[in-house]
Write a protein that binds this DNA or RNA. Structure first.
Length: 480
DNA sequence: TGAAATGTTGGGGCG
DNA sequence: ACGCCCCAACATTTC
């Protein structure tokens, strides 16, 4: 039997269910990756994301080569490209790991239907999550809408039957390794820029980063994860996005640290695991409520409408995108995103809250901008977190969560190290003024080479006034 | 994984 | 010794 292994967001050899099955069941296995031309042309993702993906593919090609398999590339609309490849190569069975985004599910259903009509076998596998949506349900069988209930049930499932990890497939005797690997398209071929990658791509780098994280930072995660100036988080998000690391592997490895001896702090380890469960929660929300991809989880009465469209709106949005709002922690975050394709999670919340609550722009513009600039841009997680910040999501505390950028800054970047790194014009501003540089006395502004309104902007909105306006409008809408 | 306003308590200074 | 005020620290409520 001749099998096709269709790689999508599972760019790894280890613990890959579809790949293992294909290798076990087929005499010959052809691995395929399709560059989704319509999707790439739409520029939903940015150069950092595409560059990361290309790096992952290069390593996948090498490691498949070591197994005696040759990775093939096609460019085009995915459905047609896969069907054409199946026809060209005389494939009997097609293997892939499931994707839960609404668009991907429609596409996969089409591919599956067409292949079935042709009498070919299709086998799909759970891989991107530890538990799929249907596996974590309440007693009524309904999907959870509250994280806390979901988390409790998730851990019950884990204790009852933790999914096992699979070994990497054995080296094959197909003899394909003698063939030269197929050239892949470059970033330029796909009309993306080649940009420096601030997180190393590939399965090997993912494993190394995981091991590094589990030996060190995870044991001070409760505090360390909130400090954007230090390397205190796993930074594994792009790897989970592209499947260079499986969530199963990560959970097993983190739990193993609890029994491995050495300095171990349960609360820290479980706080990190909680983040993985959040990720699964948002996957579940997207699966069970696919409309969230297009709009609010709940059509909320009681939340102020975004500001009207127009030049004023465009000016505020551009200032947010480019990191010149006059709020240092917001600007540092946006510049980190623009420069590196990644933003610290604490700062993601601060910048998102600022867009929605202070500037009162629509959260979906922010969601789109993050997707275009994050190398870990993942529909489910990004959408879920934006809805959380915009108070349109599953969270109970509707509307009242408004971050104060100064307090967040003082609490989590006390010395201003993070701010100074990404907003260099503030480098010489004394720590006393670093969180509110517009209050710096004029002579100290001169000394620090940072004149407000010249080298660094004054705040584009007044937080206190914006907060009060937001709450007043919310109250007005709630009690008409 | 919010922040501000409001309420409560207890210690210290002071007359 | 006592009442009074102030304020910090903490808890609760409200937006």
């Amino acid at each position: 039997m001749k099998g096709l292994m269709w790689f999508r967001r599972d760019l790894r050899i280890c613990d890959n269910p579809a790949l293992v099955a294909a290798c076990q069941e087929c005499r010959e296995v052809v691995p395929l990756f399709v560059f989704d031309e319509p999707l790439l042309r739409s520029h939903v993702f940015g150069s950092a994301c595409v560059g990361f993906m290309l790096g992952c593919l290069d390593e996948l090609q090498r490691s498949l080569g070591d197994l005696g398999l040759r990775l093939h590339y096609r460019i085009g609309e995915q459905t047609e490209a896969v069907l054409q490849a199946v026809k060209d190569w005389g494939i009997d069975a097609v293997y892939w790991n499931r994707d839960y985004e609404p668009g991907a599910r429609d596409r996969d259903r089409r591919v599956q239907d067409r292949l079935s009509q042709q009498g070919r076998t299709v086998k799909t596998f759970k891989d991107h999550v530890v538990f799929e949506a249907e596996e974590v349900r309440g007693l009524t069988g309904e999907p959870f809408q509250r994280y806390s209930a979901y988390r409790d049930r998730w851990w019950n499932r884990w204790r009852a039957a933790a999914p096992l990890m699979l070994p990497a497939p054995k080296r094959r005797a197909d003899g394909r390794e003698t063939q030269a690997p197929q050239d892949r398209p470059s970033a330029q071929d796909l009309s993306y820029e080649r940009v420096p990658l601030w997180i190393e791509p590939g399965e090997r780098a993912a494993q190394a980063r995981l091991q590094w994280f589990l030996r060190g930072p995870i044991h001070d995660y409760v505090n360390g994860r909130n400090l954007p100036a230090i390397d205190g988080t796993s930074k594994l998000s792009p790897h989970f996005r592209f499947g260079t690391l499986s969530a199963r592997t990560a959970v097993h490895a983190a739990l193993a640290t609890l029994t491995a001896g050495g300095p171990v702090f349960r609360a820290d380890v479980f706080t990190w695991l909680d983040e993985l469960v959040w990720r699964e929660f948002f996957q579940q929300v997207l699966t069970a409520f696919p409309h969230v991809a297009k709009g609010p989880f709940k059509a909320k009465a009681g939340l102020p409408a975004p500001r009207l469209e127009g030049p004023e709106r465009d000016r505020l949005f551009a200032a947010w995108c480019e990191g010149r709002t006059g709020y240092p922690i917001v600007d540092a975050g946006m510049r980190q995103l623009n420069q590196t394709g990644w933003m610290h999670n604490r700062v993601r919340m601060v910048t998102a809250s600022f867009l929605v609550k202070d500037l009162r722009l629509d959260w979906q513009s922010g969601e789109r901008y993050f997707m275009q600039h994050l190398m870990d841009g993942d529909l489910a997680a990004n959408n879920g977190n934006w809805q959380w910040c915009a108070s349109t999501g599953t969270d109970a505390m509707q509307g009242y969560r408004i971050f104060n950028p100064r307090i967040q800054s003082e609490k989590f970047d006390r010395d201003g190290d993070y701010i100074r790194h990404y907003v260099p014009e503030l480098a010489k501003v004394p720590v006393q003024w670093i969180h509110e540089p517009h209050l710096t006395p004029p002579d100290e502004q001169e000394q620090a080479d940072c004149r407000i309104g010249i080298e660094y902007p004054a705040p584009i909105v007044d937080h206190k006034a914006a907060r009060e306006e937001y709450l007043a409008l919310a109250k007005q809408k709630r009690t008409p």
